[in-house]
Design a protein around this nucleic acid. Structure first.
Lengths: 160, 160
DNA sequence: TCGATTTACCTTGATATCAAGTTATCCGGG
DNA sequence: CCCGGATAACTTGATATCAAGGTAAATCGA
């Protein structure tokens, strides 16, 4: 009987006509996401980062050498709008974690790359981050985690 | 090989020392949450609501008669700060969906209750919402959805 | 080759949120 | 009874985000 179960019981009482089973699942998903984000933010903060900045730096890092992408590529990878990405890149540039050069092949665009400092920082931060994540899924066995993975993937596949 | 798998493959290539399996699970959870929210927002918008306002009205509605809670109770239920709740309640009051009365038993506090209009609106909106949610979990069988439910619950239990 | 369309990115304006600080009220120990 | 600490809710200031609009450059069709 967790928090979500109590909500479902209330609805059952008030509106027995509703099918609330999906609400339970989606409610837990939302709540879990919230709790997980809160936990992961602590790790990011330890490196002076937040979800946004970590997201951008990690996207550049995992791309491999020369660790560079256009703002448009970053927008697509991180699912944010152009205004948001502009803002994020300004912050990161000011912090000296990325560098911005005009794209020689396209006068409209830029290439954003990791600075040396940005590379060093994200390489450390991502290691700590994966450790945090491992701790967060500790409540499940490997098999259960893998099962969860499969169900999430299946659900996501039908929606994207 | 979905979007998340590609990310994991990139990390595997770049940082084979990292254990990225948890990242896959948590990444899908985040992405799924994002996609689901987007979808549910459409239903809410159909009733002139958004996640925030729906959240408050639904919390009051499922509470049962007399459909009233203090701002503090609402804060606890919806996991937002006091400033945020103040703002939400202002909007809802302006829209005539809630009413605010001083708590007779506590001079510091208020009681927020659904107006007739608010009750009628949320009662319709929540029915549409549960239908949307049922559609969103269509990609899973009942058994799979229930399995997912169980795993999310287990994971959540270890963290809250 | 040239005009129309598309694309890349930035800018603007509005909104939602949070953290921290504030004020009024309540409550419990002396 | 009163005073100090706790609590309820609002206010303030900062920030992140989005949607919509703008500008410059690229591309495509005739």
């Amino acid at each position: 009987m967790d928090h979500v179960d109590k909500i479902l019981a209330q609805w059952q009482q008030q509106r027995p006509d509703l099918n609330v089973a999906p609400m339970g699942t989606l409610g837990r998903l939302k709540r879990l996401n919230h709790v997980l984000m809160r936990a992961m933010e602590k790790t990011w903060a330890h490196y002076g980062l937040n979800e946004s900045s970590f997201d951008v730096l990690a996207t550049l890092r995992r791309e491999g050498a020369p660790y560079a992408l256009s703002p448009s590529d970053l927008m697509a990878s991180t699912m944010v709008t152009s205004g948001t990405m502009t803002h994020r890149l300004q912050q990161l540039e000011k912090a000296g974690l990325i560098e911005r050069v005009k794209n020689p092949d396209d006068g409209r665009g830029f290439l954003i790359s990791l600075s040396g400092k940005g590379f060093a920082l994200i390489d450390e931060a991502v290691a700590a981050h994966t450790e945090t994540q491992a701790r967060l899924v500790n409540g499940l066995s490997d098999k259960q985690r893998s099962q969860l993975d499969d169900l999430l993937k299946r659900l996501l596949a039908g929606l994207e």
